Amino acid sequence: MLACTGPAALLAPEAQSLGRRTQAWQQQRRSRCARRIICQAQTNDNSPAAPASRRAALSLLAAAPAAAALAAAAPLPAAAAEAAAEVDTTVTHRLFLDVGVCPEAVRTDRRLGDKTPFCGDPAPLGRIVVDLYGKAAPGSVATLVAAAQAGAYASTSITKVLPGRFLLLGTQGPKRSGLVQAPPGLPESNPDLLSSAAFRLPHRRPGTVSLNLSENEDDDFFRFDPKYRNLSLLITTGPGPVPSLDGENIVIGQVSEGLEVVTAITQVPTFTPNDNARAFNQFAKFIGDERAEKTARKWGRPLQAVVITNCGLL
């Protein structure tokens, strides 16, 4: 953790001698690390009774440029705001997601061969309606529309909930686990992935919906398939922006109805590691331990099943 947020003087002399490209990459990695930690650090106990390691970490975070920038909540730079203003956000489709919640994450009475992992009658939370920007991200919206029309998201679960940041849905996997199975007939390619214009819109408002690239949790088994199409969606929860997602994901729409449902989802209890586990994981990730990413995937898992009971186009 200290390596993630410490000043450049703490880096090894060999790292200081690297080229500009490597130094920029290291700075970006430290900044991302600081942004991910600062939200929880602001709510941690910083009293004299707190562990010395936590107080030291918080003092470094307070001095880190990334933490200061996040605390200031600066508006979009003029150039970025101008680029976003040029994007055509005409609404071409309206997607609905009906959401319910079960009292437990999985059914305890499931029998061998039963492909229904959730309770039979989820308590309804409400409907989320998303206005899709078919002109700003035509390839991504076309893929999403085809998947929604085929019912790919129905009877699947929201796999991660991070209050104050975002929630995830559309992770691909077996239906018996409540994951999405890509239907046949999806577009053969998504040209948005190769277009810089598709990444212009920021994640500034609660309810911003984007094609999830940076936080995608699809297994490599699916990603390496030549017919793989990304169906993972990310919805920001608010109340503030999530600048760490800007330029990393393709914004495809905005929640126009049902923000209260998004807020209700954030109230569902989730698996949350303690501070020591987070610190060790951040250090392991910084040194390149592949187990860190696998462990972090479990964070934010709802302890009750949040189910998309139905989906489609209005």
Rank of each mutant, 00 (worst) to 15 (best):
I252G: 00
T263I: 03
A284G: 03
E257P: 02
Q254Y: 05
N249D: 10
E257Q: 07
F283H: 12
I265S: 04
K285I: 04
F271Y: 14
D246L: 01
A279T: 02
A284Q: 07
G253A: 05
E257I: 08
N274F: 13
T263M: 02
A264V: 02
S244F: 10
N276P: 06
E260V: 13
N249E: 02
D275H: 11
F280Q: 15
D246V: 00
R278V: 14
N274K: 10
A279G: 06
Q267R: 15
K285C: 07
S256N: 05
S256G: 11
S244Y: 08
E257Y: 04
K285E: 14
F271R: 15
E260D: 15
Q282V: 09
V242R: 02
P269G: 08
P243G: 06
G240A: 12
F283P: 02
L245P: 01
I265A: 03
G247A: 04
P273S: 10
S244E: 14
G240F: 10
T270R: 14
T270Q: 14
A284N: 06
N276E: 15
G240W: 12
T270P: 09
D275R: 07
N276H: 12
L245Q: 00
P243F: 00
K285P: 00
E260R: 06
I265Y: 05
G258D: 04
V261P: 04
G240R: 08
V242T: 08
G240L: 09
P273L: 10
N274P: 04
I250Q: 04
R278K: 13
E257D: 05
P269H: 14
G253K: 01
S244W: 05
N276T: 15
T266L: 02
R278T: 10
L245V: 06
L259F: 08
V242Y: 02
E248P: 00
F283T: 10
L245W: 06
V262A: 07
I250E: 08
V261L: 03
Q267I: 05
S244G: 07
P241T: 00
N276M: 12
A277L: 10
G253P: 01
S256I: 02
V268H: 11
S256C: 07
Q282G: 08
F280D: 14
I252D: 01
I265D: 03
T263Q: 10
V268G: 12
P273D: 11
Q267A: 15
L259A: 05
F280W: 09
N249F: 05
P269C: 12
A264F: 12
S256Y: 03
N276F: 14
F271V: 15
I265G: 07
Q267N: 12
A284H: 03
V255K: 02
N249V: 00
E248D: 09
R278E: 12
T270G: 07
V242D: 05
T263S: 12
G253F: 03
E248V: 00
Q254R: 14
Q282R: 10
F271T: 15
E260G: 09
D246W: 00
P273K: 11
V255N: 01
F283W: 13
T263A: 13
A277I: 13
Q254C: 04
N249C: 02
A264L: 11
N281Y: 11
V255H: 03
F280R: 11
F271P: 02
I250F: 05
A277K: 10
F271Q: 14
Q254V: 04
Q254M: 08
Q254G: 00
V255Y: 01
F280Y: 13
E257H: 06
E257T: 07
T263K: 09
A264H: 07
D246K: 01
F271A: 15
